[in-house]
């Protein structure tokens, strides 16, 4: 009786292990195959030709520039908010947090439409901007605005939790020793939170680089002005598959390195 039940659990464990194994390998297979397939589609020589094409070069350059600017703006605008929300408990903090998180879950078309209705020629804010001759839709600036809108939550969330993780005793000690609040922030809080902040910055940059839907709606699609890498992939898919695949490979390789770097940085931060 007793031995029988032991055998049963033994068999049960084996079965569980087998099922888990199948699920795990099945999933990894499912994730890896499409990415690996991209690499089988072009020869290295075709890759080089494709990536040197005007459409690809324009897109790479535009993406690098706009995503960098967006990331810098997100850091400048997002850091004070993240710090205040980490340190100050005020009424409505949850509402503010929810608002800043919202772009993560919004479908890109909603973001694009909202931006168009707000900053478009006839938009809520856009109408007033028009008085000064500022016209946003279909410009490179619109690309940056779209990227800021969708990528900011990645930095702000990470920044808030990294500030929360900083031991307040260090800050208090710094203040007791005569350092002002700004000095304390820059000389104590920021250095301690730095590695966690950096992973937030990298994720924000990667998300900005991958931005597609909102850009297409709000900034349009024009080579050299608003056609970033994801838009170039979408467009060249219809005319030159090699260029599309080459750009896709660049994005996949870059994103993989980014996430791996983030894991390395945050792993080091923990130890």
């Amino acid at each position: 009786m007793n031995t029988c039940s032991i055998q049963k659990t033994g068999a049960g464990r084996t079965l569980t292990a087998v099922i888990a194994g199948i699920l795990i390998f099945g999933f990894l297979f499912f994730i890896t195959i499409p990415l690996a397939a991209l690499f089988t589609r072009v020869t290295p020589a075709d890759f080089v030709t494709a990536i040197m094409s005007p459409a690809a070069l324009d897109a790479l350059w535009l993406s690098a520039v706009t995503a960098s600017i967006s990331t810098v703006i997100v850091v400048i605008l997002g850091t004070p908010l993240a710090y205040v929300n980490a340190r100050v408990a005020y009424r409505g903090r949850n509402i503010v947090d929810t608002l800043t998180d919202l772009p993560i879950v919004l479908p890109p078309t909603v973001a694009g439409l909202a931006l168009l209705i707000a900053f478009g020629r006839n938009g809520l804010v856009g109408q007033s901007l028009g008085i000064f001759g500022i016209y946003l839709p279909f410009t490179t600036l619109a690309v940056i605005i779209s990227q800021i809108f969708v990528s900011s939550p990645f930095y702000i969330r990470q920044a808030r939790s990294s500030f929360e993780a900083v031991d307040r005793d260090y800050e208090s000690a710094s203040r007791t020793l005569g350092e002002g609040p700004a000095g304390t922030f820059f000389r104590i809080t920021l250095p301690i939170a730095a590695s966690a902040l950096l992973s937030g910055i990298i994720m924000t940059f990667a998300r900005a680089l991958g931005e597609f839907g909102a850009t297409l709606m709000f900034a349009g699609n024009f080579q050299g002005t608003t056609q970033t890498m994801p838009l170039a992939i979408y467009t060249t898919m219809q005319s030159d598959m090699n260029v599309a695949v080459a750009l896709a490979i660049v994005l996949v390789v870059f994103s993989f390195s980014v996430i791996l770097t983030v894991k390395y940085i945050s792993g080091r931060g923990e130890s």
Binding site: L113, L116, P137, M217, G220, Q223, T226, Q238
Partner: peptide, 15 residues
Amino acid sequence: NVVSEVDAVDKIKPV
């Protein structure tokens, strides 16, 4: 005068 080139009319109607 062209500010955007799209692949389907669905992207023209909203603007």
